[in-house]
Structures are given as structure tokens and as C-alpha cells.
Write a protein that binds this DNA or RNA. Structure first.
Lengths: 143, 143
DNA sequence: CTACACCTTATACTGACTATAAGGTCAAGG
DNA sequence: CCTTGACCTTATAGTCAGTATAAGGTGTAG
């Protein structure tokens, strides 16, 4: 069941991660140092794969490596209260929502900017350049 | 209105930018090297302020420094066709929209994650940790 | 036994700054 | 004129999450 051995490349393949990234996670203390062959090749097991998948999933959800580290530490202490995890996730969620709002405002402004130029003139008449030069975006009087 | 001289600190204040950032822009070729006092202090004019505000505003709209550089080069050549600017902006807009969609999906997943834990149990029963460990739910060992 | 894919480490680079250190300059007050 | 202190100068290193490169060692198939 859990006796499969992976080299770093195989683990990379199995987890859709690059080998250099796995070694980077080891340096950063997110992955444990695995046993080695006589020649020094890393040998990973399914346990390592599980942990790596945990890291990658958390990263895809936008958690920083620091947060992932905390999450892993909490996950490793099975008797720790669950509320710590919930707090991490909730905080991250509110950060994501804030970023979402900012990005949404940005999109509106870019669209406004994009719509104001027909692309037919030259720079000296370009409303986009005008807007970037001085319009703070809250006014409808250009320049 | 014209011929006002700023030290880097004054320019920083007038543009809501840090002085180190202004010097960084100079090193990166976005701001021109201004004249200096006998002692070596940079002396900026309103022309510099204009350019800096252009940069800052573009950055606020999410353009990379590389894009800002291109935008500045185009803006400096007043007879260049306007369509170049429009392309830059449109491309950036579609990138922003893509990021917006990703972030939105992320928010949904985080909310789902957050909602599944009441924060009352311990890690060994935590559904968030379970979810991060693998959505197939067959493993109860996150490590 | 050799070819070749894979592995090892160390180092430097990315973007857009930020932080720190060690020292020089300028204007004001005494 | 001298000192104080706020400001300026440069150079260097750090941030985050990897990516790129170089120079060399290992494992295995034919």
C-alpha cells in the first residue's frame, strides 16, 4: 500500500509539481528530508506524496507558503483545536474578497479607459494617454 | 505654475510615492536622471512630477513596470498611432478579467471550506483539513 | 561499457519594491 | 562659525514563490 518509492522526478510527475519546487519546499521546511539512495538520490514514499498534495492544494487556494506551514503544523497535531484552522481560512477568505473588490473596480476603470479610444488617431489626441497623464478617474472632464 | 524645484523627498510627498521608489524608477529607466545640486541632491521639476504621476497612475491600474515603460515611450512620440495604446489597455483588461474569474472561483471554494467547519472539534475531525488533504475523503492522515 | 536520462548542489535571477547601513549635505538656531 | 538634525547619497541584501543555469554525479538499458 504505502511502499511505493519515488525519485524526485516521479514525485514531481505524480503531483504536477516541478522537481526544483519540491526541493525548494524541503529547503523551506515544508517537506521533510527523505531517505536517500547510496548515490544520494532522494527516495519518497506515499506519505510524502500526501503531504506534497496538501501543500499544492493549499497553494492553489492562494495560501502563502507561510500559511501552508502553519496549516501543516496544526494538521500534524491531531488534538489541537480546530478553531485555529477555521481562523486561517476565514482570514484568507476576507483577504480574497478584498482583492476581488479591488480587481473589480480596476476592471471597470480599464473598461472605461478602453472604451474612450477608437484607436484611429495619433498619440497627441489619445484620450487614454490623457487619462493616464492627469485624470484621476473620478471626474468626467478630461485633462 | 512651472519651474518649481523638488528634492526627492518633496517629489515623494507630492506624488504619494516613497523616495526610494523614485530612485528605483530612475535606475530602471522610467524616470530621467534629474539635475543635481553641488552636493549631489536630485532636483526635480514639474515635468518630472507629471511623469511620475503617469507612472503611479498606470501602476495603480495594474500595469507592470515593463508595460508602463512601453506606454511612456509611446506617449513620448506624439505622432505614433494611438492603436498601440489601445492594444496595451485591451490586453491588460482581458488579463484582469481572467484573474477576476479565477479569484471568484477561489472565493466560492474558500467559502465552502470555511462553512464546513464549526470550529468546535479537534484536528482529527476537522473537515477543512480533510478537504485540504484530499477531496476523495479516503485518507484520514494528512501527513 | 557507453550512452543518456535523470539526479545532485550551488548560485543567481525574476518583479516591484522595502530595509538597512554608513556616510554626506543643507538650512536654521545660537 | 559651529552644531544640530532632518534630509540626502550610494550600496547591499531581503521579500515571495519559485525559475534558470552550471557543473558535475548516478542509474540503467543495450
Amino acid at each position: 500500500m504505502s511502499s511505493v518509492a519515488y525519485t524526485v522526478g516521479k514525485l514531481a510527475q505524480a503531483s504536477d509539481t516541478k522537481a526544483v519546487t519540491i526541493r525548494y519546499y524541503e529547503r523551506e521546511g515544508l517537506m521533510p528530508s527523505p531517505p536517500r539512495t547510496r548515490g544520494g538520490y532522494r527516495l519518497y514514499s506515499d506519505v510524502h506524496l500526501e503531504r506534497l498534495l496538501f501543500i499544492r492544494r493549499s497553494r492553489r487556494l492562494g495560501f502563502s507558503l507561510g500559511s501552508v506551514k502553519k496549516l501543516l503544523e496544526i494538521a500534524d497535531r491531531k488534538d489541537a483545536p480546530c478553531v485555529n484552522v477555521d481562523m486561517q481560512v476565514s482570514q484568507h477568505l476576507s483577504e480574497v474578497r478584498e482583492r476581488l473588490a479591488q480587481l473589480s473596480a480596476l476592471e471597470a476603470e480599464l473598461q472605461r479607459l478602453s472604451a474612450c479610444c477608437e484607436g484611429e488617431g495619433v498619440i497627441s489626441n489619445c484620450r487614454i494617454i490623457e487619462a493616464l497623464s492627469g485624470d484621476d478617474g473620478t471626474s468626467d472632464t478630461p485633462y
